[in-house]
Design a protein around this nucleic acid. Structure first.
Lengths: 256, 256
DNA sequence: TTCCACTTTCTCATTCAATGAGAAGATTTT
DNA sequence: AAAATCTTCTCATTGAATGAGAAAGTGGAA
């Protein structure tokens, strides 16, 4: 079991346990004990011991093949994260889906990425790019640009200085051009992107404002050749977000 | 800070950290450090130290009021739990919602409860009983009875021997009566309940079978006075589940 | 304003739980 | 059948976790 990794001393037990959980990030499917040990950079015996504890608690679940998966207790716990926003927005996102019959999604900013916290879709248009719980760069999607535009200039500048990925040949990565786009988003309070993540898709998004700040962005994705639908879809989006903002303020039970 | 709790010695660090996370279960909103300490049955200083680590990792998030909430990293991780079933079933559940225009939900069994792992609803009928990530007893809902009926007799017997809660006066809690109901569910392969969780609601559910076993149940909830809709809704449910079972078997990318 | 009750933050000497190499067995691959 | 890989488990050693308590912070009442 060649432990050629750099043994980071001074690690806390908790951080070891958490690194085991983190081993499941960006992974589809289940992992064996030794693969988890590799990914977590932990000795095998330590991994084994910690896994046993996590499994007993319900954080990990062992499949019939002996491999491990994230357990439903973690999923349940996760439902408590950002519930105020997610719970209140969801019914309106569903209404929007029925009205527009296009994929609806809502994202928040997490670091330099947008995190998709809700998503409405049927079998007709299965999402090809964003996934519930998935992350995408801020500069190449409508929701992302909105979330970026809501940040202070120093953040935008720092973001644009980095190496920006280009999922399609049409993806704008030029800092100057993007700066101008951000300014326009700020001025118009909505964002449209065309073929920035896929060559056949475009998206439209508007911000969700709460307590004077942008807390999320709600967007639609549809075929890139239907750009003339934007004037029809934008008011729907705006109306949806307005309703969300209302319930967020009003608020029934005292969440958060 | 009277630590009058029974100090359970022989506790592992991991279990302490996990008990801090568990403190957020069955809680709406955020918790202060001392409240977490109470709920986790841990000394304050220990709690403080562990919280700091969890926060740094992203498992907890501190609000502007100083209180803590579950962080989005846990939510993201949770998305990996049971993904195969949830991801594949979801689009069909959405289709079903559009077709039936009734609340759709999918639940799995976790111990002696059903856990609602997906839920489709708009503003029209907001769910009054089950919540995404919530749990309900097995004997008082259609999905629950189905999940119970799918278990071996020894499990059913053990379940019925316990004290069964009755959310409404009409809830059946008599073991003999429930046994008969379970048998009927087994025979007909679907389940209808009327006013078992609320006096104005009824529900209908069918099982999702995979690898020869019931892995989940899909159900609809609607007004209790619309019981004659059952013959119309049941085929829709059956069709939906059939499609789900097909993609589970077929399978595109090699999930799980 | 001051007082009081409660919460958060942090330190440090002590101790108890975590550690991981390695052995043995199980399982899969060649 | 041998080789390779993975899982399980033990135990002497060590170092990270512990929690009482001090100090500072917060907020409400009078």
């Amino acid at each position: 079991m060649g432990d050629a990794e750099i043994r980071e001393s001074g690690q806390s037990v908790t951080s070891r346990a958490l690194s085991i959980l983190a081993a499941f990030e960006n992974t589809t499917g289940s992992l064996s004990v030794s693969r988890i040990a590799q990914r977590a950079h932990l000795p095998l015996s330590t991994t084994y011991r910690l896994i046993a504890e996590l499994e007993e608690w319900g954080g990990l679940r062992r499949g019939s093949d002996g491999k491990y998966q994230i357990g439903f207790r973690i999923w349940e716990l996760g439902q408590m994260a950002g519930r105020r926003l997610r719970d209140r927005a969801h019914p309106f996102l569903q209404d929007l889906f029925e009205l527009a019959h296009e994929n609806v999604h809502m994202a928040i900013r997490e670091g330099v990425q947008s995190l998709y916290v809700d998503k409405i879709y049927g079998t007709k248009h299965m999402p090809k790019i964003s996934r519930l719980g998935g992350r995408l760069p801020l500069h190449a999607t409508a929701v992302g640009r909105l979330l970026l535009a809501s940040q202070p200039d120093w953040f935008v500048d720092a973001y644009l200085e980095r190496e920006l990925e280009a999922p399609t040949p049409k993806t704008v990565t030029d800092p100057v051009e993007l700066r101008a786009i951000i300014e326009e988003v700020r001025a118009t309070n909505y964002s449209v992107t065309n073929e920035q993540m896929r060559l056949d898709a475009m998206s439209l998004a508007v911000p969700v404002v709460f307590n004077g700040g942008v807390v999320a962005a709600v967007g639609l994705v549809f075929d890139s050749h239907r750009s003339r639908e934007v004037p029809r879809l934008l008011p729907m989006l705006r109306g949806t977000v307005e309703r969300i903002e209302n319930v967020m303020r009003g608020g029934t039970a005292g969440l958060h």
